[in-house]
Design a protein around this nucleic acid. Structure first.
Lengths: 209, 209, 209, 209
DNA sequence: AATGAATGAGAGTTCATTCAT
DNA sequence: TATGAATGAACTCTCATTCAT
């Protein structure tokens, strides 16, 4: 739905607009953001915006999709660091929180977007949940988690836990917030038990005080 | 911050404006709602609005607080129906979902509000979480739940689970959605385990197929 | 489709806007006219315009209808001055030209409007033609004109003659143009013969030098 | 005022732009047409337009002149088919209507142009009228028409009749409208009488039922 | 010759808010 | 208490035109 530039110069311009959009949306929210704020931030003329995006709504959608891709990438990277299911979850969340802390936009803007671009939002959440479902299904097959758990419901529950904790400790605690280890520990404990994962052996350090 | 009417007629007018505001915000979101839409829906003149509310923002805050009160009331009622901690949680959520299904506004609008009225939002979430913390603390003292769990973190986690499941099954599944019992069961199971509540005796019916 | 003011003050304002619109449309044409030019000319704020007219298009339609009413009134008045069919036609045209000379807007704007508000234009022309048809039908019944003439076709033909002559001699000859008597005479002669009206007796003065 | 291409390739390009302009102006009117729509329709880059036309206004003028030439050609051809003055008029109009039916653009666009390019319009009308004047003058010299008629006034009257009938029966009756023979007959009758042409002998078929 | 990129002025329209009645 | 009138700033979006390649 967006127009692809045909020259290198154009691509550069479009990229700058998208970056500016992220900054502006993050600072003012969807409604508070205006095309003119975006173009000013990007250092281009107002009309230039419409060369690449038909509407303000459309940049927003592209931005959400872009952020979604990046956050999933981050989570996936974190997840692969873990050797057990639990470690995977924990590291996935850690990366998620880190990403969120570096891009508070994703929280604020994405949450606000439910009203303004529902499809984009659903795509966003669904994609993340799909990742969880896959991981959980594999884990269940391997006997690592409660065999009676519905992986889809569990996945949405995990999503919710992560989102809420993130909102509370990252967004609310000032802009450079970070989820403290103690909270991450408690959260991991809750999730471990919720998923029915056996308690790690004493040697395994669950509690990184 | 809002002006209290001095006559009965005035009270009636203010009430009608608030009701209209709920309807209009629910339908159009915060930005899409206009004062004129609200006054039209309320059947009063445009100027009348400003007799009771100094700004559009202020009705919104009052509305959020009002909804918050009602949702907490509903949850509390449900909660008291339960005889064990687990039943309390389950019934609390059930009422929460029921309320949400009847007032999809609360989800949409409240979620959107994060940006537009952050203080109101924090108050909203904090109040609900406070209720949870209280319940959980009592339960922990009674030995009903995992003694090592940080009740505050757990409360936020519960909040997140409820919100996300509600969003997914109530808002997304069409407007008259309802969370199916099977999902509520799975969710309850996840929470029971997460909180470290002992499995109910066989006689207790956890699985309402 | 326009909003009626509920107070005297409002009516006055709406009237001023319509008057300003006539002036501005006359000067700049439909496209060249802007709402802001109109409101400036009317001495009101830009937003005030939208209190009474939903769009620029809508004032235009109201204006065309208004002009139409006035021009038909003028023609009718002139027409009634004549004692014979021919005199009626002649005097009707004379008034038409006089009106057009005083309101060059009607020509320019109305002609331009075919593209921008076709319905309004058709209404305009049809109403005028209807007047002609009525007059011609009566005259035909009275044996005053060619009995084999289709009054509808004749009416459109008359319309065309008047419009074109008016455009040529009023609009083109400078803004305060007036159709010279000699032209009106020639035109009347053409029409008299075209309609098959018997030549007036010598005593009757057809040629008003 | 337009730039003449120096190569065959350039000529081809300019021609394509003019053709595209006709289509686009016909569809959207003068203001609704944009240079970018024209260049897109022509399949050339936006900048290319300005190689051949200094402004949007200028293509329009060229287009009007072009259409004028074609319509006069068509009328002339029809006219020459007639053996008497009356037949000439009738056949001229027939071709005019045929052309208009095939190019509704000419009506709409040309009429709209009065405001946007008055000089072009006057040239357009004047040229057609000049043709009439010439024909009528010849006919008058040959004693075919009313010797007291001012040929110039009569020519403008004829113009008006044709335009109005065409507008009514071609533009309004759906896009593939055609002036019915009965209307053409009536119109011819009106004109014949108006011009003071003697009634054709019985053998001549005036009424093509 | 041809093009896509870029621009900024200006368009129509909305709306929270103020004010006179 | 209640109201409709009025406003102007701000918004999104369009477009004729210029320019570097």
């Amino acid at each position: 739905m967006t127009t692809e530039p045909r020259t290198a110069r154009g691509q550069e311009t479009k990229r700058r607009i998208l970056e500016a959009a992220e900054k502006v949306f993050a600072e003012h929210g969807y409604q508070g953001a205006s095309v003119s704020k975006i173009t000013t931030a990007a250092g281009v003329g107002q009309g230039t915006f419409y060369l690449y995006y038909p509407t303000k709504h459309e940049v927003f959608v592209e931005l959400v999709d872009d952020l979604n891709q990046r956050v999933r990438q981050a989570m996936s990277t974190g997840s692969q660091r873990g050797t057990t299911r639990l470690e995977s979850e924990r590291e996935g969340f850690r990366e998620f929180f880190r990403f969120a802390a570096e891009h508070p936009a994703i929280y604020r803007v994405v949450r606000e977007a439910e009203f303004v671009a529902p499809e984009a939002m659903r795509r966003h959440y669904t994609r993340i949940v799909d990742g969880y479902v896959q991981g959980l299904t594999t884990a269940r097959a391997a006997g690592e988690i409660d065999p009676d758990l519905d992986t889809r419901v569990a996945a949405w529950a995990l999503m919710g836990v992560g989102e809420m904790i993130g909102m509370r400790w990252i967004l609310w605690e000032g802009s450079d917030g970070e989820v403290p280890d103690s909270v991450l520990d408690q959260m991991t404990r809750f999730i471990r038990q919720g998923l029915g994962i056996a308690r790690p052996t004493e040697s395994a350090a669950e509690e990184h005080s």
